[in-house]
Amino acid sequence: MKVHIRLFGTLGNKVPDHDPLKGFALEVPVRSTVEDLIEKLDIPQSKIGIVSINGQLVKVQKQLNDGDFIRVFQPIFGG
């Protein structure tokens, strides 16, 4: 199945094909989770803050569906 992912902050720096403004589409096996997807992209779990699917906040264990739009944000800091 096909999903669309957009990586925020510096998460997409080392991911080939990732457009910082649009993200990119990719094929994943049926019943994949967000966690599987992040692992496939070789991003360390420690760098993952919040994740949303189609605008709804989800846990990384959430299973993906065909056509999902996933946004992944880094942990935040600041003021």
Partner: peptide, 21 residues
């Protein structure tokens, strides 16, 4: 060691995640 995000995007790195929550 922990300033890569701020160097790349500045404090504006917060816009997307704070909106997302």
């Amino acid at each position: 060691e922990s300033s890569a995000e701020l160097a790349q995007l500045g404090s504006a790195v917060l816009v997307a995640p704070i909106n997302a929550v």
